[in-house]
């Protein structure tokens, strides 16, 4: 069994670490070997946050080879572009098109790069996760929505998600469940 390699990227405060914990835990519950690795030194200050999750029969390094990333889950549009060097022919890239202004830009419109034109890759899923999350009544469930979108391609179902989620988050189980399924649906119906 080949290892599954996931790269999760975003901006400090978006819950990248929490999301990778849940994904790793779903794999653990399935009895697989799991490792995860994150760099969040200055994340509280709105810097870039990234996390690798790897699972399979036996995992040595928590960091995979750069050209062996199966999935990129980007919580912010521009951060998916920064992760482009991890995209191989088969990588599935799921992007929340939420834009968070970096301090180096004067405004969110001027100079903010567009993922669709910047990333020359077919398997790019650009979803308005934050917008959809807001529709469920609370934008905090955006993480569940993103995990749902990723799970569409993995062997995890709603029950696996709910078990791992509720080890950490007790609040809003129904909203999170709805968001998870919405994420799956968005990817399923996505026209590439």
């Amino acid at each position: 069994m080949k290892a599954t390699n996931i790269l999760i990227v975003g901006v400090g405060g978006q819950g990248i670490v929490a999301a990778s914990d849940i994904i790793a835990d779903m794999a653990l519950t399935k009895g697989l070997d799991v490792k995860k690795s994150e760099i969040h030194g200055m994340s509280q200050r709105g810097g870039v946050v990234s996390s690798f999750v790897r699972y399979g029969e036996k995992i040595y390094s928590s960091i995979p080879f750069r050209d062996e990333i199966d999935f990129i889950l980007s919580f912010e549009e521009m951060e998916s572009i920064r992760a482009a060097e991890y995209i191989n022919n088969d990588t599935i890239v799921i992007v929340n098109t939420q834009r968070i202004k970096p301090a180096t830009l004067h405004s969110i419109t001027e100079g903010y790069p567009d993922a669709k034109t910047s990333i020359k890759h077919d398997r790019l899923y650009l979803i308005d996760a934050i917008g959809e999350a807001k529709k469920t009544g609370n934008e905090k469930v955006v993480n569940s929505l993103m995990i749902g979108a990723l799970s569409y391609f993995l062997h995890f179902d709603e029950a696996d998600f709910m078990v791992s989620l509720q080890k950490r988050v007790k609040k809003m189980p129904d909203e999170n469940r709805t968001a998870y399924n919405k994420g799956k649906e968005l990817v399923k119906n996505y026209v590439l």
């Binding site: 901006v11 400090g12 200055m42 994340s43 509280q44 200050r45 709105g46 810097g47 870039v48 750069r66 050209d67 521009m78 951060e79 572009i81 920064r82 482009a84 060097e85 991890y86 995209i87 191989n88 022919n89 990588t91 970096p102 301090a103 180096t104 830009l105 100079g111 903010y112 790069p113 910047s118 990333i119 020359k120 890759h121």
Partner: peptide, 19 residues
């Protein structure tokens, strides 16, 4: 060097900031 991935794309920096 082995590289079967897209080339890095120059992206505006996101330095940490005081809140």
């Amino acid at each position: 060097k082995q590289s079967n991935t897209l080339e890095a794309v120059k992206t505006p920096g996101r330095p940490p900031q005081l809140c």
